[in-house]
């Protein structure tokens, strides 16, 4: 089970990007680079929010490029705005099972279970605004886990957190990815995060990996 990128290219404005990368299940790959270097562009290409002009992108030899974001074997924890403020924590997580929010009772059990797993039991009825920044990211992570996709993209998910919370989130992430054999791509500007997760490190230079 491998995520393969072969010269996946796109031109945005005057900058041309071209990415090649190979990441297997239960590996963590960290993408390092200054802001504006193209880290988000890479995740947007993999996630399906941008269409490459050429190149090959496969998971387990299946071509990903024609698939819409929701059908890709991929789930993303964004830097911010992972939650809808008017829905409860439980509803936000449940969207990972049914985008129409129509769940059977065993599905709701799964939602509660995953909230336990990320250390937020009993917070299901709260609105996101009542949660701290770290807790909000945990809810986002819970939904990613519930979607049961083999590839997890982490888009600077710890960037806005304070040191202590960041440490807690990192250990939680480390636990859940190793127990689930996920293939993880972490975008960060902090090499320490990459080291903590025993990640392979890649640096984007002049729009290329």
């Amino acid at each position: 089970m491998t995520l393969e990128l072969e010269n996946v290219s796109i031109t945005l404005g005057t900058q041309t990007f071209s990415f090649s990368l190979s990441a297997r299940a239960s590996e963590v790959h960290a993408i390092l680079g200054k802001s504006g270097s193209g880290k988000s562009t890479l995740l947007n290409l993999i996630g399906g929010f941008l269409t490459p002009s050429h190149g090959r992108m496969t998971w387990h030899n299946e071509n990903l490029i024609p698939l819409p974001p929701e059908d890709r074997p991929i789930t993303t924890l964004f830097q911010a705005h992972n939650l809808f403020d008017h829905l409860t924590v439980r509803q936000n997580v449940a969207l990972g099972i049914s985008p129409k929010l129509k769940l059977k009772s065993q599905d709701w059990d799964a939602v509660n279970q995953v909230l336990d797993d990320v250390g937020l039991p009993n917070r299901g009825d709260a609105l996101p605004i009542k949660l701290s920044g770290g807790e909000q990211q945990r809810v986002g992570l819970a939904r990613c886990l519930l979607r049961k996709r083999p590839v997890l993209l982490l888009d600077e998910p710890f960037g806005a957190l304070d040191e202590t919370t960041r440490g807690e989130m990192l250990s939680l992430t480390k636990d859940v990815i190793s127990s689930r054999n996920l293939c993880v791509l972490l975008v960060t500007h902090n090499p320490d995060d990459a080291d903590f997760l025993n990640a392979f490190k890649h640096t984007i230079l002049n729009g290329r990996i």
Binding site: E70, T76, F78, L87, L95
Partner: peptide
């Protein structure tokens, strides 16, 4: 703020409007 999330979760059409 949320369009990429909406897209990746596949929330569309009437569900998107209602929810």
């Amino acid at each position: 703020s949320h369009d990429r999330l909406v897209q990746s979760l596949g929330i569309a059409g009437w569900s998107r409007f209602r929810l």
